[in-house]
Amino acid sequence: MTEYQTLLFEQAGALARITLNRPQAANGMNHTMTRELADAAARCDTPGTKVVVITGAGRFFCAGGDLKDFADAPGRGRHIKAVADDLHRAISTFARMDAVVITAVNGTAAGAGFSLAVTGDLVLAAESASFTMAYTKVGLSPDGSASYFLPRLIGIAKTKELMLTNRVMSAELASHWGLVTEVVADDQLASRADELAQTMAATAAGSNGGVKSLLMHTFGNGLEEQMELEGRLIAARAESADGREGVDAFLAKRTPDFA
Rank of each mutant, 00 (worst) to 15 (best):
P47Y: 09
A25P: 01
G28N: 04
A38K: 02
C44I: 09
L20D: 03
T32K: 02
L37P: 08
A40N: 05
I18D: 02
R22E: 06
L37F: 13
G28S: 13
R43F: 06
C44F: 12
G48K: 10
A14E: 10
R17K: 14
R17N: 14
A16I: 08
I18H: 01
A12S: 15
R35W: 05
N30H: 09
M29K: 02
R35Y: 10
A25D: 12
L37N: 09
A14C: 00
Q24N: 10
T19L: 05
C44H: 03
M29F: 15
H31E: 12
P47V: 08
P47H: 09
A41N: 04
P47K: 10
D39P: 03
P23D: 09
G48C: 06
P47Q: 09
A38Y: 02
N21Y: 13
I18G: 00
R43V: 06
A42C: 10
G13D: 11
C44A: 09
I18S: 03
A25T: 12
E36Q: 11
N21I: 07
E36F: 09
Q24E: 15
P47I: 05
R17E: 12
D45E: 06
R43I: 08
I18L: 01
A40H: 05
I18A: 03
A40F: 12
R35E: 12
T46P: 00
R22D: 08
G13L: 04
L15V: 15
N21L: 06
M29Q: 05
M33P: 01
L20N: 04
D39L: 11
Q24L: 12
R43M: 15
Q24D: 15
N30L: 00
A16P: 09
D39I: 06
A38G: 06
L20E: 01
A16M: 13
A12H: 11
R17M: 11
A42N: 14
M29N: 06
G28W: 04
Q24K: 13
L15T: 13
A38W: 05
L37Q: 07
